[in-house]
Computed example of a mutant assay.
Amino acid sequence: MARQPTLAYIVATNLEHPGLALKFEGQVEGFSKYFRTQFINYQFKGTDGLILKTIKYIIFELMVLFAFMGNNRIYIRYDPKAILTNFFSMLFSPFKPVYFEHNGIFEISLKKLNRSSEIKLHGISLSLLKFFPATHIGVTKEIQSYLIEQGMKKTLYIQNGYQFPSTPPSTPKALKDTILELKKKYKSVGVFVGNGYIWHGIDDIFSLFRGRSDCALIVVGKGYENNKKEDNILMTGPLGSSDLSGVFEFCDFGVSMFDSNMKGLTSPLKTREYLCNGLPILVNFYDNAADFEKIRPFIFSYYKDNKAFENILKHDFKRVDVSKRSLECFNWSTLLSSIV
């Protein structure tokens, strides 16, 4: 039996973001169906000082270089700050398949975050990468179109998938008791998961729930404040993947980002997570999950009709049906098969 080809999956970030860590885990398992997969990431901590971060970055880039030399294929989560990784891709892409996964239109997101130096670095990176034969993958069709406009000759569209955490769902007792009290008071409970980014449109989401006596919202993540202290909005702070799965068991629907002006972010991890955990979703822009006809009924589009919020409060979908159909669509090994 022939040996499986090898693939190195390279990400220039740490695993502190639970959603990203879960995505990387799912992709590695998806790749493993086709390749012997090596996962390499920049293993810094947010609390590390500059010198320690620099040392860890040098170690990361050395590991990347060895991965380029020792693997048949290379898959990179694009990051303009990973200067040496991007340079190595230019050296090796004429000799072996190299793939870049693009998760956003960086000019837009970096401008929102006021990171002018990274915008310049991104511009330089793309202006050079377009001359080399790597394949550039957009997780949305908008990103793929943007990459073509930037001169990338080989592009693919592969939207985000989902895989359940390896640990079973669990909810801390104190949080579970609080949520159960919330469910006694309110007929329908929604959930929003995020990390404090400005494009999440959290104030617009809050406005849907303010003053309502029939529904409540659970907000999971850091960087959000319930300034008006509404009784029907519960802030949990950050939760790990297994704790988050436990929270989903008490919810009736999920809420996506609400800033409809953010181009390229139409394949959010959070909506795949909601759907695969059996929760219909409320969206304020076209979500690429709607590419799959079998799960379109579970997507309530507020940007098309503001009655979508009232409709999702009254939905009667069975959780097991939502989950089963969604998992069939968002299986990582199926989504990634196009690069084999």
Rank of each mutant, 00 (worst) to 15 (best):
G237D: 08
K270D: 09
W332Q: 10
V219F: 02
F60D: 10
P165M: 04
T135W: 01
D321W: 09
I143R: 00
A82N: 12
I40A: 01
E29L: 13
F206P: 00
N311C: 07
L84Q: 07
L129R: 03
L244T: 14
G194C: 06
N331S: 06
D291P: 03
G237V: 10
L208M: 06
T334Q: 11
P169W: 08
M235L: 15
I158R: 00
F39M: 06
G254A: 04
E107S: 06
I281G: 08
N232P: 03
E249A: 15
A216E: 01
S32T: 08
K130V: 09
G26M: 04
R272E: 09
L156V: 05
E149D: 08
S256F: 05
L22S: 15
Y146L: 00
R73G: 02
P97S: 01
I205N: 01
L234I: 02
L275F: 08
A134G: 12
S125Y: 03
S213W: 00
N232W: 03
W199C: 05
T6M: 02
W332E: 09
N114H: 13
N331G: 02
I58G: 10
E230R: 07
L91K: 04
D287V: 10
G254P: 03
T171C: 13
K45G: 11
K185S: 15
K120V: 14
K33V: 07
G70N: 15
F317G: 10
N195P: 00
G161Q: 05
D316L: 04
K141F: 06
S338N: 04
F285Y: 15
N71R: 11
L327G: 06
I137G: 01
H122W: 13
W332L: 05
L126R: 06
L282H: 09
L91R: 02
R73S: 14
K173V: 15
K184L: 11
I137W: 00
C276F: 07
I158D: 03
E25C: 06
N331Q: 09
V11H: 11
E310F: 00
N311W: 07
D259R: 01
K318E: 15
D259F: 04
V220I: 14
V322G: 07
A308S: 15
P18T: 06
K222R: 09
D316S: 11
P165L: 03
N311D: 12
M235I: 09
G278V: 13
L22H: 06
G190E: 07
G254R: 01
P97A: 02
T271L: 05
Q38E: 12
I295W: 10
L244K: 10
Q150Y: 01
R212D: 03
D243G: 03
R36K: 06
A8E: 11
L275D: 10
A308C: 08
K183L: 03
A12R: 07
P172V: 13
H315K: 11
R325L: 15
F131D: 10
I119T: 04
Y274Q: 08
T178G: 06
L234W: 00
D203P: 00
L91Q: 05
K45Y: 14
C251T: 14
C329I: 12
V320P: 06
S117E: 14
Y99C: 00
S256T: 12
A21Y: 05
M1F: 12
L20V: 15
K294G: 11
S256E: 07
K96E: 03
F68P: 08
